[in-house]
Each structure stands twice: as structure tokens, then as C-alpha cells.
Design a protein around this nucleic acid. Structure first.
Lengths: 228, 228
DNA sequence: ACAAAAGTGTTAACCGTACACCCATGA
DNA sequence: TCATGGGTGTACGGTTAACACTTTTGT
């Protein structure tokens, strides 16, 4: 990083924000958390969860603080996706924005919070028109997430800590928006030793019941191989 | 992007910069373009090619302007890698920096320019200590580039427009820092129809001569499949 | 007994990898 | 003729993809 010969004044006017793309899972579909803007600019329109970065906070920290401020969600691990920096991306100000994305267990975000924060879940096939370039952000985040979800165990946050294989498969089918072969899917799962079959069954979905599984994170960290 | 309740004052003090990670290829090895800082802060130390983003330029444009200003290299297609935003990443100022990376034909950057801009190529195995978090930036860029180079035809800029297969293979071996099987490599190449074998031979490297090939970009865009 | 979801194996195609010799040429 | 780098094919193992029936249990 080198100082250019542009004046400090010019430089200072760029603002830095973060926008959070939060995925949840419901009814076998992927959903996206959006909020309705209460203030200008763009009051009343739908938006990602975003805000300005504080002078004294890391970019990553800012993402978490903003998510927590505007949704009540805390300690969510988010990954940086991309930084958007077109001059006119935001109508009234010069703002560059780094996007961060996470997947969460939808039930960790209560109806109370939804009302309190003026938020709403949207199926990703029905994302409304968003402010600025937020629709582009969402598109990129979805693509990236679909790529990563097959190679990293990032989707287990979208399920309870004990889950059945039909649930897991439905999750993957919902995320990827394609059907998967049940036997091939289960074979792959059975190769991942850190997906631990429990004694218990979940009896709510069928008469026969389906065995519950658990994702053993510590174990995964030793194997570091994931493929679905 | 939503306004937080932090004051505008606080917000304005964050500066936005871009750092460029430029790879070149020489003597079968990957090299990295660095410049020696002429001014404070960190005068005399090695640094990536970086600078502040202008108020009136897109982030992508800024990357190109800065690269051009500080190295003389023009119209290079760069990809955004990641944005670094730790509070203390830069010793004296609050600066967040987006990194961009490109691979260029080293001979397009003349000795004249190198002297003029106080720049120098370093083998990537011998990158010196850089200012701030620039070494981290380089590490991430190299990893990402090695991943991408196998799936996208981004390395052809490092070769003349006509090249031989031994050249191409040496390029890949140099970039990846591993040896590749000649027959497997050539089989893959022969499956990519947009790598067009010419009638001509290059006679400079051997008595027998090696056939020249050409990368047909338009053709590639139809097939969109690359794997080496 | 039947409906509804859970669970289970085999085969064929494909892809990645390992491996060794002949060819063309100029000196 | 020999030294040098260019060029070629095959066999094995692992991975993916396609495919249909049996099991359990509550009603």
C-alpha cells in the first residue's frame, strides 16, 4: 500500500461498509434473510443486512457486529465473499462494501427477532428487488456457496445437532436445487467417519423412524476430507 | 448497506487501498513483481504495488490505475482476491486493502520500466519480508492462483501467442512447483480443441523442433472446459 | 394388508495416474 | 553415430452415476 498523489481529502470520502448474506433452510428450500429499511436512503425497500465499518474494528468484526446489531444473531462464522467497489453502486454516497456470507440454523433466529428487527426470510428463488447492487451480491454468494457446500461441511449449521440422513439429503437437494441419488448419497456419508450414526431414531417423519447422526467437528478436522 | 449509528466522522477516517500481486514467469519459475518504497512510511522496504482508491474511480479501475502508475503496466486483467481489513494491519493509519492479482508475460515489462519504477522481480520462493500484511496477501494469492490455473486458461498470458507443448508444460510445472507426466499432460491438451496445433515448429530448443500451438480464445468460450 | 418412508448393492463408464520406448535432427 | 529433446499408448485403480427392491411399523 503506497500513497498516491491524490489528496487526503479526496481519499477520506470513501466509506466502507459490510453486507451480510445470511442463508437459512426451511421447508426443504434455501432462504435468505433480508430487512426492510426503516430510514433513508431507500426507505421501505428490502436490503441485505449491512452497515458501516467502525474505525476501530476489523472488517471481520464489523461484519459480526453489524449482523448482531441488525438481526440479533451472534457469533456466526461468516466468510468474506467479495468486495464491491463501483463508483455508483450506491446512489448517494461513495461506499465500497465487502460482502460476508453465512449459513445458520433458521430456528436460531426467532419470530420475535424477526419482528423486532424488521427482517424477513425469502426463498432464494423469490428474492425481491434489493437496493443498490445487493441482488448481484446475492447471486455471487449463492454460486460460491453451492460450490463450497459440496467440499466443506458448512451446511451442518442449517440442521439441528442431531439429524437424519433423509434430512441431510433434503438439505443438500434444497441447497443445490437438484435431486441426488439416495444410495450414492448414503455411501458417501458412510465414508465420512465423522458423520456418526447414533443409537436413537427420529420417529417424527415416518413410522419406521430414521437413525439420527451427529457431525463430529473435531474428528472432521483430522480427516479434512468432505465430498457430497 | 445501512447507516449504523456511528458518526460520519468516525467512518470517514478509514482509507481504502488496493494492492496488486503481479506474477511473471521466467527461467521456468514463477516470479513476483515488487517495488521498493521511496517514501515514508516504511521507506526502503519491499512492497506490493499499491495505492489509495480515488473517490471517483471504481475499485477495479483503481487497481489498474495504480498498477499502471507504479509499474507502467497497462490494461492488465486482474482478479480481485480478498479484502484485508484488520485494524492494525497498516502501522500508522486505518487502511483496508483489496488485493488484485494478475499473471503477465514478463517480457512485456522491460528493464527500462523496472529501473524507472524501482521495481524488481523475485522468485516466489524468495519473496523478501514485505511491509504490513503483504506476505499474507502473497501467500493467499499464490494458493488461489494455483487452484485457478488448473481450471481456467489464465496462464497463456505468460507465454508468447505461439508456444510449444514443452513450453506449456514447463510453465505449469513452474507455476505449480511440481512435475507433471508428459503423456498425461499431452493427452489433456489434445482434448482441448481450442489449443490449436499449427504447422510451424519452433526450432530453437531442440534439433528436432517442437510444434507450435495457439490458444483460441473465442473457441474456448464455447467449450468452457479446461483442466490441466 | 397397505401406505409411507427408511434402508440397502451391483454394474458400467469415466478419469486420473503410473509407466518406457522410439523419433527426428544437427553436430 | 550419438546426444538431445520431442513425441507416443496402455493398463490399473478409484470415483461417479445409474438403477429397484426389501424393511419397518402404524393404522
Amino acid at each position: 500500500m503506497i500513497k498516491s498523489n491524490r489528496t487526503e481529502q479526496t481519499i477520506q470520502q470513501i466509506k466502507v461498509s459490510v453486507d451480510c448474506i445470511i442463508f437459512g433452510f426451511n421447508d426443504n428450500k434455501l432462504e435468505l434473510l433480508l430487512i426492510k429499511k426503516k430510514d433513508e436512503p431507500e426507505k421501505g425497500k428490502w436490503s441485505l443486512i449491512g452497515g458501516f465499518v467502525g474505525f476501530d474494528e476489523d472488517l471481520d468484526e464489523a461484519a459480526n457486529r453489524i449482523l448482531s446489531d441488525l438481526s440479533g444473531l451472534q457469533d456466526i462464522y461468516m466468510e468474506q465473499i467479495k468486495t464491491f467497489g463501483k463508483v455508483n453502486r450506491c446512489s448517494f454516497d461513495r461506499v465500497i462494501s465487502s460482502t460476508y456470507s453465512a449459513m445458520i440454523l433458521k430456528s436460531s433466529y426467532t419470530e420475535d427477532q424477526i419482528e423486532k428487527y424488521n427482517a424477513q426470510w425469502f426463498p432464494i428463488t423469490e428474492v425481491p428487488e434489493l437496493i443498490f447492487d445487493h441482488n448481484d451480491m446475492v447471486d455471487i454468494a449463492i454460486k460460491r456457496m453451492r460450490r463450497r457446500v459440496r467440499n466443506f461441511p458448512i451446511a451442518f449449521n442449517l440442521l439441528p445437532s442431531k439429524f437424519t440422513l433423509p434430512q441431510l439429503q433434503a438439505l443438500y437437494e434444497g441447497i443445490l436445487d437438484e435431486t441426488l441419488d439416495k444410495r450414492n448419497f448414503r455411501r458417501k456419508v458412510s465414508q465420512m467417519n465423522y458423520l456418526v450414526k447414533l443409537e436413537e431414531k427420529d420417529m417424527t417423519e415416518s413410522r419406521r423412524g430414521a437413525f439420527l447422526y451427529r457431525f463430529d467437528e473435531a474428528w472432521y478436522k483430522k480427516e479434512k476430507h468432505f465430498n457430497l
